[in-house]
Amino acid sequence: MSVLIGSRKDRTVSGAIAALDGKPTTLTTGTAIGILVEAAAASPGSQAGKRATTALTKALTGHEEPQVRVAAAKALGRIDAPAAVRALRRVADDEVDGQLVAAASEGLARLGTRADTRRLTGAADRATWEHAVTAAGVSTRLLAHRLGLRLDPADVALRLPGEDAPTLPVTGRIKARIHDVELPVPRKAAVPDPQWAALVPSDAAPVGAFDCGGRTHVVLATGDPARLREAPGVAGALLGTNESMGTTYVRWVVLTRPEGDGVAVTVARPTGEVGFVGTGSWGDDGSLTVTVEAVDAPGATAARATATLRGRTFTIDGRAERALTVPRLVPAAFAPR
């Protein structure tokens, strides 16, 4: 669940611009950027949308707070407008700040074109901060899947973080069954959040939901799985739910690429970290059956599941350990400066 910030009076494009300019309002900077991006993404060609995009571009280049610049870059990555894409490309081409390069790369994975793969590869080569190198590589890969561009499977720069990690066998004594459940939200509400919607095929629709150890995932699947036979693609997404706000958000994207007679499957967070890998095969009736296993990563739980998509019908069955298999990371104790 979440909290909403700010008065109704301030929750406008003008209020958000004022907040970014440092004027006293009831908005936080994060909320102000959120309001601007919502206005611009909803209607990029409108007067309000243009004002919002301009304000975000200004924050990207001129705000004194590094994290505000990063947040502005992430926000621009949601606005499908030439001005936003130009701003992100400038960052990817010229910026030395690794955090900004990483944020701009994420945006270009969602908004970019074929030509941006070269730009992102260049950004990865130029970046000195490890996360920026990773983010640019991840973005190149996601962009290729989004646009259906051919990949070189052996290219290490295109491997996602954790994709080559060993899988985790389900050996724990206490296991949970992975099984289909009713959709936890109305069908209309089962949509990707705007931040990551561009990574999910526009024809994707909810085909079911499943429970894995008390955590429910809503499954969005492409309406045209046959295209996954020909080129890398995004088969769909697994959504989490924010019950109080009635919203859903992308928890995992399901990436495929042709391999032999079937497909290689990678289930990754929209920021690129891989959770599951596996393979899929085609049925005579055009159905796609995939089997995936969890990979070794902080906070991972051993799991193995087989899912079938037949038209708009989705079924899944599998097993997972009930508790985490790999411990989470541990933050360091605070030391006063």
Binding site: S2, Q99, A103, Y249, G299, R328
Partner: peptide, 23 residues
């Protein structure tokens, strides 16, 4: 550096990822 971009949360999914990875 260790937060790998999760110091600026851009979606509920990223917030969830943060708690999935650290404790």
């Amino acid at each position: 550096a260790d937060a790998r971009g999760r110091d600026v949360i851009n979606s509920d999914g990223e917030a969830e990822s943060l708690t999935d990875e650290w404790t």
